[in-house]
Amino acid sequence: MVNALSAYTRGFLTQTNFSRTDEAGEKSAKLPEKSDHARGTVIKDTVEISAEARKLAQAEQAKNALRDAKVSYFEQFRPTREGFSSRNLALGIVDPSAQPFSQNRPFDEVAQAARENMDSKYQQMRESGEPYGTDNFEGKETYSLMGDLDRRALYAVASNEGGHFSKEEQQTAKDLMLGQQGMAMGLYNGPTRLDGVYTIPQATSNADHMQKYAAGIQYMDQVSTEEKATSVDWAQQRGRMQYNYERLSRDSGITPQNHNIYHPAANFIFGALESYFGFANDADIGSRKDLLNEPWFEGYRDRLGSVMAETRDLYGLNDL
């Protein structure tokens, strides 16, 4: 992906001059002119932006340009019906902390907004003569339905916040979130016809797998407070990825980088994996029940409830 994206950042940086003028009806960058009528002279005040400030502005522009390029790149793997957008789903791959839809609103309001947005999409599809589900080739129906939702809003659907969402909608949101995580880790998730377009190579060595686990850890650490505080799936994935990363590092004779996090549930699950002497497979654990059924978690089952409560309390969400 790096090679595919490098061209987007060339020649982007620009320099901005901040001055204003006070001429009637015009806006520019010069400060107001001051007339000294007694002397018949004109005094002009100009503001010079420091080189350091310009560098910071240019760095921010470059950062935003690179992010936009990455979002555009991933958007192609989330095809939609004509007239629909999946840009926020693609943004959720690049920056799961971004909130263009949920906008830091209370979580119950995010869920209500997601419900209304999805209902409008259902209605739009019905009015087109092709109701939702008519043709889900390459996932176009689901990407169209939830394409406006950022990662936090997707979690509101997946967790059935407020009881607004059907089982099918919850599972769809979970699948989309898992696909976002996978793509962020360098694991292809998209239409088969675009598999060859995806530029991130598959893991073929311990070092490759370590890099992907590290990328997964970094990605998961950026998700919303609600997801980190209440999702058993988040906790087990975060604990498992750190466990796998450190195990592969030790097996390769490499000192693992420090990816520790202060998160009671993730650390609890990491500890359960560390103490297990058998093989802990990479099962799809999406609920508390799934985790409790894992053989490697047997000696830890009785404490899960209190650990999740401690986690919610840590994030100020113990009433959830």
Results as ranks from 00 to 15, higher is better:
190 G>N: 03
266 A>T: 05
281 N>Y: 06
159 S>Y: 00
154 L>M: 07
112 Q>V: 02
310 E>A: 09
167 K>H: 05
183 M>Y: 01
236 Q>P: 01
80 T>I: 05
149 L>V: 02
157 V>A: 09
287 S>N: 03
157 V>P: 14
23 E>A: 12
229 A>Q: 01
276 Y>Q: 01
127 E>F: 04
94 V>A: 00
112 Q>Y: 05
190 G>M: 07
112 Q>E: 13
244 N>R: 15
105 R>W: 01
80 T>C: 07
15 Q>W: 07
248 L>N: 07
7 A>H: 12
50 S>Q: 06
155 Y>I: 08
187 L>T: 15
59 A>G: 10
292 L>N: 07
52 E>M: 08
214 A>Q: 11
123 Q>M: 08
247 R>G: 10
318 N>E: 07
155 Y>M: 13
117 N>T: 13
22 D>P: 00
103 Q>E: 13
119 D>I: 13
277 F>H: 08
112 Q>N: 05
288 R>K: 04
211 Q>H: 09
43 I>T: 08
22 D>N: 14
308 M>R: 01
177 M>C: 02
203 A>I: 07
147 G>Q: 02
133 G>V: 02
197 V>W: 15
22 D>T: 13
251 D>A: 15
173 A>D: 06
198 Y>L: 13
298 E>D: 12
157 V>L: 08
29 A>G: 15
317 L>E: 08
256 P>R: 01
13 L>R: 12
199 T>L: 15
186 G>M: 13
200 I>H: 09
6 S>N: 11
170 Q>R: 03
53 A>W: 00
213 Y>S: 09
89 L>V: 08
68 D>M: 11
25 G>T: 15
8 Y>V: 10
67 R>H: 00
256 P>N: 03
67 R>M: 02
272 A>C: 03
263 H>W: 06
237 Q>M: 12
169 E>N: 12
315 Y>A: 02
290 D>H: 04
241 M>V: 04
45 D>K: 11
129 G>R: 02
228 K>A: 03
180 Q>Y: 04
214 A>K: 10
11 G>P: 04
303 R>E: 12
230 T>F: 00
166 S>D: 06
47 V>Q: 09
44 K>V: 14
244 N>G: 03
272 A>R: 04
293 N>C: 01
195 D>G: 11
29 A>W: 15
209 H>W: 14
14 T>N: 08
55 K>T: 10
148 D>S: 13
250 R>N: 14
201 P>M: 10
259 H>Y: 14
112 Q>W: 01
186 G>Q: 13
222 Q>V: 02
38 A>Y: 02
202 Q>D: 15
23 E>C: 05
169 E>A: 10
70 K>G: 14
89 L>P: 11
121 K>V: 15
125 M>G: 04
30 K>E: 09
286 G>N: 10
174 K>C: 00
198 Y>H: 09
226 E>S: 11
231 S>G: 02
78 R>M: 11
248 L>D: 11
246 E>V: 07
235 A>P: 05
101 F>Q: 08
184 A>G: 14
299 G>I: 11
267 N>H: 04
162 G>M: 05
58 Q>H: 01
213 Y>V: 07
139 G>N: 05
98 A>I: 06
247 R>E: 15
283 A>Q: 11
304 L>T: 06
130 E>F: 14
217 I>K: 02
98 A>G: 06
11 G>E: 14
69 A>H: 07
169 E>D: 15
264 P>E: 00
262 Y>M: 01
247 R>C: 12
280 A>Q: 05
245 Y>N: 09
213 Y>P: 01
